[in-house]
């Protein structure tokens, strides 16, 4: 092997991790596109004899929507603060976002409970309750994405405590910020979809 002198590799136009994240988001959008269009395809048309339950979405899903919007706002400000090197604010806002994220999870749980109370269970669904099964599957898939986001948030928060998140080290912060917006927008889309498409 050759003794490496100071080799200066060209820097890349986009940070690879960021690009990877975008590609991942593309892939998971496809997953949701598939499941959502399965829902659309499956919904029987008017003349079909098939049974299909239409139900009001649990109110907690609406609360989740509000929470997710709020958390997006805090995530955005956390990002902005980091960019301005206001580390204390950044740290607090990150913590706030994490807490809101956990709040979202709780709200989802309550929403699912509400569905169970309406007898729209997942496992023993009545045949015509396939609509509910779809809601279960899709919200749970989304929930997994949220969990990933929370892990990212916590990791960023820890880094922020260690004063590693600042103007010159925005890599992780950018990822978290982008991803959190993604799961937020995804949820809003899903909520609106189920609200109108039932």
């Amino acid at each position: 092997m050759v003794k490496s002198k100071k080799i200066k590799d060209p820097s890349y136009p986009v940070a690879p991790a960021k690009l990877n994240l975008w590609l991942f988001m593309l892939a998971s959008s496809m997953l949701f596109a598939a499941t959502v269009s399965a829902f659309v395809v499956h919904r029987p048309d008017a003349e079909s004899r098939q049974a299909w339950t239409a139900f009001d979405l649990p109110i907690f899903f609406l609360y989740s929507t509000i929470i997710v919007i709020a958390s997006s706002v805090t995530a955005y400000y956390a990002y902005k603060m980091a960019k301005n090197d206001e580390l204390a604010h950044n740290k607090n806002l990150l913590l706030g976002t994490t807490i809101l994220g956990i709040g979202f999870c709780i709200s989802q749980f309550l929403g699912w409970q509400q569905m169970v109370r309406l007898d729209l269970t997942f496992v023993n669904a009545r045949p015509e309750d396939i609509s509910a099964s779809y809601v279960w599957v899709i919200t749970m898939l989304h929930f997994l994405h949220i969990l990933g986001g929370i892990i990212l948030l916590i990791a960023t928060w820890v880094q922020s405590i260690r004063l590693n998140v600042h103007k010159k080290n925005m890599g992780l912060m950018t990822l978290t910020h982008t991803y959190w917006h993604f799961v937020g927008v995804l949820w809003i889309f899903l909520y609106l979809f189920f609200y109108f498409a039932q």
Binding site: L23, L26, A27, S28, M30, L31, A33, A34, T35, A38, H42, F122, V123, N124, A125, P127, I130, S133, Y134, V137, L141
Partner: peptide
């Protein structure tokens, strides 16, 4: 692959639920 494999994943998830949890997708 990036655009189509997630769709297969969706199909497989539904199939898993049908097989093991009693749904009828």
């Amino acid at each position: 692959g990036l655009l189509s494999f997630p769709v297969l994943l969706g199909a497989a998830i539904f199939l898993i639920f049908d097989r093991s949890f009693g749904t009828s997708f």
